Simulated assay, not measured.
Amino acid sequence: MIQGFKDFITRGNVVDLAVGIVIGTAFAAVITAVVDGLLTPIIAMIFGERDLTQVMTFEINSAVFSIGLILDALFKFITIALAIYFFVVVPMNKMAERRKKGDEVVEEDGPTEVELLMEIRDSLKK
């Protein structure tokens, strides 16, 4: 049972997943800081508010509704997703393609199947 657990923990997939989560969390923190410190204030400035969460905020019967809060969450999600796609996924896919090209077996140019069959036919005729 303990050996099975050791095998599970030392398997490459688990270690890769753990590293990916840690790096992803750190990367998300950087992107969130850029969004909160730079992009969100620019968008809020366009709407004339202090921050994006205050955009389209209204109150009905002491209940506060904030469309800006939803917009802020969506903006952060889309920005983080775009950053991860362009800075992580696209480069990783390009690296995988390069590795795949390097691993491809190069076939030597030899006679085709039809040519081999023709040679056999000609040999049998002789």
Rank of each mutant, 00 (worst) to 15 (best):
E104H: 09
F5V: 11
S62Y: 14
L74S: 07
S66H: 03
M118L: 12
A63K: 09
K76A: 02
R50Y: 15
K6N: 08
G48F: 00
V89P: 01
P91H: 07
D109L: 09
A81M: 13
K101E: 12
K100A: 10
G37Y: 00
S66T: 04
M95D: 07
M56P: 02
A18P: 01
K101P: 00
A81H: 10
A96G: 08
N13Q: 13
Q3R: 12
F87S: 09
V90Y: 06
R98M: 10
I31L: 06
R11K: 10
E104Q: 13
F87Y: 08
M45P: 03
T57Y: 06
V22D: 04
T79R: 03
I21T: 05
L38Q: 09
A33P: 01
L82D: 06
G24N: 03
V35F: 12
D122T: 02
A73H: 09
A96R: 13
D103E: 13
L38N: 09
T112Y: 05
I43S: 00
I78C: 12
M56H: 04
I70L: 09
G68C: 02
E113S: 15
A28K: 00
G110Q: 06
M92F: 15
V30G: 06
V106I: 09
I21F: 15
R98L: 09
A63E: 11
V34S: 01
A18N: 08
V22R: 02
T53S: 10
F58E: 01
E97F: 13
V22M: 05
G4D: 11
E97M: 10
F87H: 06
A29W: 07
V30N: 03
V22G: 05
G4S: 11
E49K: 07
F87E: 07
P111M: 07
R11C: 09
V19N: 06
A44T: 01
I67T: 10
D51H: 03
L69I: 11
I2E: 08
R121T: 03
F65P: 01
N13S: 14
G68K: 00
V90R: 11
A29D: 10
E108R: 13
K94T: 15
V34F: 03
F5C: 04
V34D: 01
M118H: 13
S62R: 15
A26I: 12
K94G: 05
V55E: 01
I80V: 14
K101Y: 14
T10W: 07
S123R: 15
D36P: 00
I60F: 05
T10E: 04
V19S: 08
F77W: 11
L74A: 10
I43V: 13
I70T: 04
I2W: 12
G102P: 04
N61S: 14
V64L: 09
L117D: 14
L69K: 14
A26E: 07
K76C: 04
V88T: 12
F87W: 08
V106C: 08
T79D: 04
K6R: 08
A83T: 04
T32G: 08
I2M: 06
L38T: 14
A28T: 08
L52I: 03
T57R: 10
N13W: 15
G110V: 04
D7I: 02
N13D: 13
G110E: 05
M95I: 13
R99D: 10
D72S: 14
D51M: 03
V35N: 01
R98G: 09
I120R: 04
A83I: 05
